[in-house]
Design a protein around this nucleic acid. Structure first.
Length: 197
DNA sequence: TGCCAGGCCCTCTTTAGGGCCTT
């Protein structure tokens, strides 16, 4: 585990229902390497997702806080993400905040839907849940949301719910935490489609 | 138009309820 490459990811979606939401933005960060792409969702966004993410779809185009966003078809987003992950020397660990609750089920379902799960499985060895990890590392702090953790450990606020910024902040947090390998392993989970559906 | 999740964890628990965390 110590030599595993960890790629920090975040995704924005049309809602919180992992069984049906669409991906709007997917970002990944590993050191200086950055992946960040957007897709126009086909599902309606929930009101809370609109409010939280700032995304809107008008006339088949994606806007964030009023600005037009460049998008790609969802299949292109997924295949280019797999290509990005394939650029690392070994299968990587994908780390995200509450990854087991949200990002992993969504990614797994959408990859399967587009018949890309076998390729995804080739380049990803596991999921590291930084929410669960932070609770184990710091059992007595007040809140474990990513915004709270960034405020507490990095002393700053940021553009939360922009997936690229979220992924970058998560990488910064991890570098400050320097978690023991045992705790990282305890909060890393295998990639398995049967975990979710 | 109105619909809007769910598994884990904690405790004032276990014959359960509520808050957290992700969008």
């Amino acid at each position: 585990m110590a030599d595993k490459i960890i790629v920090f990811i975040d995704l924005e979606a049309t809602g919180l229902d992992t069984s049906q939401c669409d991906i709007i933005q997917l970002a990944a960060v590993c050191e200086e390497k950055v992946f960040n792409k957007f897709a126009v969702p086909h599902q309606h966004m929930t009101d809370s997702a609109k409010e939280v993410t700032g995304f809107r779809v008008r006339s088949g185009r994606l806007f964030r806080r009023g600005s037009l966003v460049e998008t790609v078809p969802i299949v292109d987003l997924l295949t280019s993400f797999i290509d990005f992950l394939r650029s690392f020397r070994d299968p990587v660990v994908l780390a995200a905040h509450s990854v087991m609750r949200f990002d992993a089920p969504v990614l797994t379902r959408v990859m399967k839907k587009h018949h890309l799960f076998p390729q995804f499985q080739e380049v990803v060895s596991g999921f590291l849940d930084t929410f669960l990890l932070s609770k184990r590392l710091f059992p007595n702090i007040r809140g474990y949301s990513q915004v709270s953790l960034v405020s507490n450990f990095l002393g700053k606020s940021y553009d939360a719910h922009n997936a690229e910024e979220d992924a970058k902040m998560l990488q910064e947090l991890y570098k400050v935490w320097r978690p023991d390998e045992s705790k990282v392993v305890a909060n890393t989970f295998k990639v398995n489609e049967k975990y979710f559906y």
